[in-house]
């Protein structure tokens, strides 16, 4: 296990390294933040001074070297837009994104697994058919449209929930969390539900397919024959085996919610990292973009590792050490 973790970390570092090079070259091709942000009344001399101040007049490899030197001192640079260290800007928005992602994932599992299980166990009942048909809506309706509908229905028409923004927060571990207050939860519900809808449909369908596959298998019949209660067969023998693909998908989806829930964050004016990265790309805020992508790479690697560990818990036959794999 330890060797496997080490290997993963090595992979992550390598991917991050490649990614920073790509970002540097890419950003250099696109343009510079000076031309985008400079005062329309600034003189050409002032423009040159600014370009020099940011070191943007240097060769790209010099700029990259400076970045690496900074990185060695754990300094990812200062945001061109926010005038704060890039890492701090990102981490400030991290709790908002994290709680949104957790809530969305929680809701999607809460909705998806039971419904999928039901649809798999009773494939021909009218309720199952209804569940399966509605799930098509779940992943075919575009997120931004559903988000607007939620706002129009629950906020504008009914007035039950706030239309956008993040609610009251409390400070825990030095970070601002909103899911611990009632006001915060009421703000969190709509965006989380909006994000969960697609994932719930996906999990639902995966669970149902898995159940349909596992049910006719020998060990399930044996379990029944042994006289185990139906409840125990379903929850232990069936569900546990169905969970492996579901866990993979939940893990990946969790990562993508954290990294790329831009649409939902924008519509609900949720102050998370997804919105930050889009704004930063539009403003060519290189320190933020680089730092953000590095964090995301690290995050995905970590999630994949956790998923792999979960596999071994769910199914002892699965092994990820070298000897087992090849």
């Amino acid at each position: 296990m330890f060797a496997s973790i080490l290997q993963r970390v090595g992979q992550a570092v390598f991917v991050m390294f490649c990614m920073t090079i790509v970002v540097f070259i890419g950003m250099n091709l696109i343009g510079n933040p000076i031309d985008l942000l400079i005062s329309p009344n600034a003189t050409p001399v002032e423009r040159q001074r600014l370009i020099a101040e940011f070191g943007l007049d240097q060769a790209i490899w010099v700029q990259y070297w400076r970045f690496l030197v900074g990185l060695a001192h754990l300094d990812l640079g200062v945001s061109y837009i926010f005038n704060e260290p890039a890492l701090r800007v990102i981490l400030q928005r991290f709790p908002a994104t994290m709680e949104l992602a957790l809530m969305a994932t929680f809701l999607s599992v809460l909705i998806g697994v039971p419904l999928g299980l039901y649809a798999g166990l009773r494939p021909y009942s009218p309720v199952s058919r209804l569940i399966m048909t509605s799930s098509i809506l779940g992943f075919s309706l575009p997120t931004f449209w559903v988000g607007m509908m939620f706002i129009l229905l629950f906020s504008v028409q009914l007035g039950w929930l706030p239309s956008s923004g993040r609610g009251e927060t409390v400070t825990v571990f030095g970070m601002q969390w909103s899911f611990l207050t009632l006001d915060g939860l009421s703000h969190l519900l709509l965006p989380a539900l909006n994000l969960a809808l697609f994932k719930a449909s996906l999990i639902l369908r995966l669970t149902r397919a898995g159940v349909a596959e596992v049910l006719p298998q020998d060990y399930v019949r044996l379990a029944h024959a042994k006289g185990l209660s139906a409840r125990r067969v379903v929850y232990v023998h069936v569900l546990k085996n169905v969970m492996i693909p579901v866990v993979t998908v939940v893990g990946l989806e969790f990562g993508s919610v954290i990294a790329f829930s831009v649409v939902t964050e924008t519509i609900f004016a949720w102050p998370g990292m997804g919105k930050l990265i889009i704004d930063s790309i539009n403003n060519l805020d290189r320190p933020i973009i680089v730092a953000y992508l590095m964090i995301i790479v690290l995050l995905f690697v970590t999630i994949n590792l956790v998923v792999d560990i979960l596999y071994t818990v769910l199914d002892p036959r699965v092994q990820f050490s070298k000897t087992g794999k090849r």
Partner: peptide, 8 residues
Amino acid sequence: GAIFNLRA
């Protein structure tokens, strides 16, 4: 680091 500054 202020790009849109008041020097003008």
